[in-house]
Design a protein around this nucleic acid. Structure first.
Lengths: 143, 143
DNA sequence: TGCTAAATGAAAAATATTATCATTTACATG
DNA sequence: CATGTAAATGATAATATTTTTCATTTAGCA
């Protein structure tokens, strides 16, 4: 289950961040989209109804949301700085290279591999990045 | 086994690209490094001995090498546009977040997961991105 | 050796991101 | 509910990154 606007608002406040109208608008823009969005795309989306919200505010809001892990950064698609709304549990992403739709998936456990790698390489492993890229059902039909 | 300078040169030529001295220098810079390097870092490395090679040439060379899959782009580290030399077979990366050292690993097969995902999501899956991030042995001792 | 398409370098243009700072505002406190 | 204050905003400038343009040079084939 994805994070709701309300839930995000609560977490922001819990961490001492103010819930400004601008932030609410940015959060709304992200939660209401199936895609992953770049800062510029969010700015455009937001700018239509709220022409006085600046791009800088988008960047600052995204930085906070990412820090609190309320949004995730995606890489396998086009931009390396596009974001999608997060889910509370650990998950990975499946991204449509055509329309940008993101599907979350869970249930794949990398810890066996992580342990093997850690032993072989003597690294202390802190995290990982796993994304699949492909074409969603709709985009397969109409490319 | 990593690609050698000579091997890369051959592949370049096979694809109709000229083997210019500048390209040789860039390739040398990448193959001689354990790290992953940003365009700017490669430029600096190269610029010491070859002050007349421009940054634009670095960008252009990287683009070609990436297109031919002779180098790989890494994401989990700092920059999303840093490159490391590739290996002929399919592999993934383990990256030290401190010094940038990259360890290739193979042998983990994602095709089971890929098939499951494909069935569940009805995506046609074309590729994936898997990187682990952590601290190498040396950096664990002296952080 | 000469020809030609491809590559280079320099400079500028286009994009993307971050810093600065005066002004405004959310919200905790009384 | 009014108010003080730290935090947030917007405008602007600064910085960083990447791409274009174009005149000149050059790798490598004929």
């Amino acid at each position: 289950m994805r994070l709701t606007k309300r839930k995000i608002a609560t977490i922001l406040r819990q961490h001492g961040y103010k819930l400004t109208p601008q932030r609410q608008v940015v959060i709304q823009a992200i939660t209401s989209s199936q895609d992953h969005l770049t800062p510029a795309a969010i700015y455009e989306k937001v700018h239509q109804d709220h022409p006085n919200i600046g791009l800088v505010t988008i960047y600052r809001t995204l930085e906070i949301l990412a820090e609190l892990e309320l949004i995730c950064k995606l890489h396998a698609g086009g931009s390396c700085r596009s974001y999608t709304i997060s889910t509370p549990q650990h998950h990975h992403h499946l991204i449509c290279s055509n329309c940008g739709t993101v599907v979350d998936f869970t249930g794949h456990n990398l810890s066996d591999l992580e342990q093997r790698l850690s032993k072989e390489s003597r690294f202390r492993i802190d995290g990982h990045l796993l994304e699949f890229i492909g074409l969603c059902q709709a985009c397969q039909k109409a490319p």
